[in-house]
Amino acid sequence: MSAVYPRAMPAAPPRAWSTAVLALALLALVAASFASLPLKWGEFFTLQAVASIAEFLAGFAPPDLAPAFVARTAWATAETLSMSALGTLLAVAAGLVLALPAAGRFGRPARVLVRALLNVLRSIPELVWASILLIAAGLGPFAGTLALAAHTAGVLGRLFADALENAAPAPEQSLRSNGASAMAAFFYATLPQTLPQMLSYTLYRWENNIRAAAILGVVGAGGLGQMLKYHLSLFQMRQAATVILAMLLLVALVDAVSFAMRRALTR
């Protein structure tokens, strides 16, 4: 019987110094942030601060549940929901159009230019877009809808382009080699691969746009945010509490619907 000798262990893979350097840089950034910011934790937890917060929160109870005010809040909730849905829909259409050149399907120059445009669109926050568009479109939900569409188009265009670039090229190349046109090969081979991922991205951004639409009203873009700013500025805390509850219920409802739809897509 021949003796069985243990096999030598494989050599450990070489460690990348770039990972260690990046981790040290992040730790240094966190340490510098704590050192540079005037964080006053002691004052935050004093008895006076706790008493002031408790007194402020007590003003929100009980919420104003008068039928007329609840009806106004329900209308503002529907307006906020419509702003987010329409803004997301417009962003999906623009994102799909911009994703094709951003994925390199029309050459490198077009890819560079369109990706630069996407960077500009998504680097400007919704509040800034709303402040700019309010000058052109006036007060109301129209400017808020356009602001959501502009920012979200930059986000979804980048995500859609990355999904198209990461799709397996073999199915589309096989159809092209068998005589299919470029458009037919894209719609029958590449788009079905990326469509579930694109839908997931869209639903996630819709969740974010619900929250953003509720905030855009602060600058006059309508919806729940405009009601909240109005009542808080007049120190009408009970009415503000009703608006905040409507925001929470709307966000919870959209989160639940979006989660159910994403779960159905991944089955």
Rank of each mutant, 00 (worst) to 15 (best):
I124D: 11
E126D: 13
N119R: 03
V97A: 15
A99K: 02
I124C: 13
A103V: 04
V120W: 09
A116Y: 13
L98E: 07
L127I: 15
L98P: 03
F106K: 03
A93N: 10
R111I: 01
R105E: 14
V97S: 02
L118C: 01
G104P: 08
L117D: 02
P125E: 11
L121T: 02
L127H: 02
P109F: 13
V120A: 06
L100S: 03
A99C: 13
G104H: 09
L113T: 09
P125H: 12
A110W: 02
A102M: 09
R111T: 05
R115P: 04
R122H: 08
S123W: 06
L118Q: 01
L96I: 15
L96W: 08
R122C: 07
L113N: 03
P109I: 07
G104I: 11
L100M: 14
L113H: 00
P109N: 11
G95I: 04
L127A: 05
A116E: 07
R108L: 13
L113M: 10
V120C: 07
G107H: 12
R111P: 00
I124W: 08
L127N: 05
L118V: 01
A93P: 10
P101S: 06
A93I: 15
V114M: 07
F106H: 13
L96D: 04
R105P: 04
A93V: 14
F106G: 13
R115D: 11
V114W: 01
A110P: 00
V97E: 02
R105I: 05
R108I: 13
S123Q: 12
A93E: 11
A94F: 14
V112C: 10
R108K: 10
A99F: 04
R115N: 15
A102P: 01
L96R: 03
P125D: 11
V92Y: 02
I124E: 10
A99N: 13
A94L: 13
P125I: 09
A110G: 11
A103Y: 00
S123N: 14
G95P: 05
A102V: 07
L117G: 03
L117M: 14
L100E: 00
A93D: 02
L117E: 01
F106A: 15
L98M: 15
R111N: 04
R105S: 12
G95K: 03
